[in-house]
Write a protein that binds this DNA or RNA. Structure first.
Length: 643
DNA sequence: ATAGGGTTAG
């Protein structure tokens, strides 16, 4: 190769996107550098298949070569194996065997086995195993290792172990493969033993141990192993961050991320998506913006996964404008996750119609929706009162896309009917389900009864629930609220007694507000400190002003206990979201949006109060519920009082 | 070896 060709090659190795590959390609053909098409073509192809979304381009290039050799076939097979159509790799492999007379080398087997593993097709995998055996390559280090992974992917530890035992001198990579295989097939004990026996370990072995623990929900064990590690890399850190984020412990995820930064480790795409997901769960708006900055700084803004996480974080922390911006500026092709996240985001913020529009756009773009997409669409319909549309899409998912509805989809339908007040329809729907309803289904129905005050149905539903999930405090409270609304105080009292007897406690509600990068949390009830005192003080003033200027009358119908009217007033007065808003009004700069995250759903009275505050004080308040957003402005809410 | 989206409820 002459120096100019070498320059091209080194340029190519730095390419991260299809666009840059194409630029180099164009440059090369313009200056005649591709006069050496074989050398150059190989490398271009190699580069193209390592980049996601570049496969079609790679295939087209491949067709330009009349007599591709084994290396080129291998390269294409490798790319296809990693793509979302790994089966094509098997097809190309068969073609290669037909056309090439050279013996198949270990690389070909390794790549095509990878494809079989990604297909999860045991039969293809075993056929390839036999072929490798005939070629005498099955005990080859590289091939044996991929055989182990293939069997692990198909859930056959025994076969994986057999292959491993046949290998004469397994290296670390092979040991790591069998370690992974044990974890993947659910044999954690075997994996631990394997880890202890390993004659050689590297950093990867430790990381496999970490991720194995994380996947089996043994976070404490993962933490212990993590502390024992002398060397840690970004993968080790990512594993911990992601592990904690996935099991909802966002505080610990934040902790690991901060520590990673202190150690001077560069955050990669996995650690950033992990911490962003924790951020989305916590609804931490300011922190999310800081993380966005870190994404830019790390140069990872071109990655789809990172953008998906950013989109989700912005929407779940109440900033739809930024979420939209991220969505529109997404690089290359949007993934199914991008579309679904956007649909869910719009739905959560009460833009049901727009969510459906995005779904249509997705259909037109040629991306096929999956089960989760439909959950989001149905969720959008039920929370916007779009009953007909919901039914339409429910039918569509099976007829048009061949997706069989799962229990979650049925749950959405029950919610769709129930929320809209079609209780009978919802009830019939539950009785006609092809699968037996779970607690969530009944709870959805109970929620609908509570919204629409149907005592008889609520009692029936509670009966079914107490068989499936008797200890759920929320269900008792819900039924009690139905009684309270109907004025059946005796029933309320009886229910309270039985709750006390069974030691079922009502879960406390809390609200969080972020002021100057500090999170303040409020809980209804006893404990008082300087912060809550300050909030109470402000709240008293607010309520007085609302009565005088806003014509506020406390709404007390959803109070649990049979107590005097005044006490009921006091009880709703203490709700955590009111305290948080009061604190926000006291401490935040004027004109700043007051953002609150709550663990339960807002009560009717608080909802009214928020609307009034937004009008009387001229502020914008954004409250994140357990399941959606309420954006209060000029005396009305984005949910249009339908929630 | 690490990633991103989803039903109900207090």
């Amino acid at each position: 190769m002459n120096p100019a060709e070498q320059l091209c090659v080194s340029l190519l190795s730095k390419c991260k996107t299809l666009k840059t590959v194409k630029q180099v390609h164009a440059f090369a053909s313009k200056t005649g550098l591709d006069a050496h098409p074989f050398v150059f073509g190989k490398l271009l192809l190699h580069c193209a298949v390592t980049i996601s979304d570049a496969l079609r381009y790679a295939r087209r290039l491949f067709l330009h070569f009349r007599n591709p050799d084994a290396f080129m076939y291998n390269t294409l097979i490798r790319g296809l194996a990693e793509s979302d159509t790994p089966h094509n790799a098997l097809v190309v492999f068969a073609e290669m065997r037909r056309k090439l007379t050279d013996p198949i080398d270990s690389f070909s087997f390794a790549f095509v086995l990878k494809a079989a593993a990604n297909c999860g097709d045991l039969r293809d995998g075993m056929r390839l195993h036999c072929q490798a055996l005939v070629c005498g390559l099955d005990t080859h280090l590289f091939v044996g290792t991929t055989l182990i992974s293939m069997y692990a992917e198909c859930g056959r530890v025994k076969f994986a172990r057999l292959v491993f035992e046949e290998m004469r001198e397994p290296n670390v990579v092979a040991w790591n493969a069998i370690l992974t295989a044990c974890f993947r097939c659910g044999d954690a004990k075997g994996a631990e033993a394997m880890f202890r026996w390993m004659p050689l370990r590297n950093l990867t072995s430790w990381n496999i141990l970490l991720s194995g623990y994380v996947k089996t929900d043994e976070l404490e064990l993962a933490k212990k192993a993590f502390l024992r590690m002398l060397m840690k890399d970004d993968v080790s850190w990512s594993t911990m961050i992601v592990g904690f984020a996935q099991s909802g412990c966002f505080d610990e995820a934040f902790g690991f991320f901060r520590e990673l930064q202190r150690e001077g480790i560069r955050p990669n795409e996995a650690s950033l998506t992990g911490v962003l997901s924790a951020c989305a769960q916590a609804g931490a708006f300011e922190f999310g913006k800081i993380l966005h900055g870190l994404v830019e700084k790390a140069g990872l803004h071109w990655m789809i996964s990172v953008n998906n996480a950013l989109l989700d974080t912005y929407s779940k922390s109440g900033n739809m404008d930024m979420a939209r911006l991220v969505f529109e500026r997404m690089p290359e092709k949007k993934s199914i996750i991008s579309w679904t996240s956007m649909i869910a985001a719009l739905a959560m913020h009460g833009y049901g119609k727009e969510a459906i529009q995005i779904f249509r756009k997705m259909e037109m773009s040629g991306t096929k929706p999956d089960g989760i997409t439909f959950i989001s669409v149905l969720y959008a319909c039920s929370h916007a009162g779009l009953v007909d549309e919901g039914c339409e899409y429910f039918a569509k998912m099976r007829v048009l896309y061949g997706i069989e509805p799962a229990i979650e989809h049925y749950g959405c339908m029950v919610d769709l009917y129930g929320r809209a007040g079609k209780l009978q329809k919802a009830y019939d729907f539950v009785h006609e389900l092809p699968i037996s309803p779970n607690a969530v289904i009944w709870r959805t129905l109970l929620g609908a009864c509570s919204i629409h005050g149907n005592v008889e149905l609520a009692e029936q539903v509670k009966e079914a629930l107490s068989k499936l999930d008797p200890d759920n405090s929320g269900d008792h409270v819900l039924l009690s609220n139905v009684y309270a609304v109907a004025g059946k105080w005796k029933d309320v009292a009886a229910l309270r007694r039985s709750m006390a007897d069974q030691r079922i406690k009502k879960a406390p509600g809390w609200s969080v507000i972020e002021v100057d990068r500090v999170m303040y949390s409020f809980m209804a009830g006893k404990q008082s400190n300087k912060i809550t005192e300050e909030a109470y003080e402000k709240l008293r003033g607010i309520m007085l002003k609302l009565r005088v200027e806003g014509g506020y009358v406390p709404e007390v119908r959803s109070v649990l206990h049979d107590i005097e009217e005044e006490d009921k007033e006091d009880s709703v007065f203490r709700h955590s979201e009111k305290l948080a808003v009061a604190f926000g009004l006291a401490r935040q700069r004027e004109g700043q949006i007051i953002r609150i995250v709550k663990n339960l759903r807002v009560c009717r009275d608080c909802h009214t109060v928020m609307k009034l505050i937004s009008k009387v004080y001229g502020v914008e308040i954004v409250v994140r519920d357990r399941s959606r957003f309420h954006s209060f402005k000029d005396g009305s809410c984005s949910c249009k009082d339908y929630w």
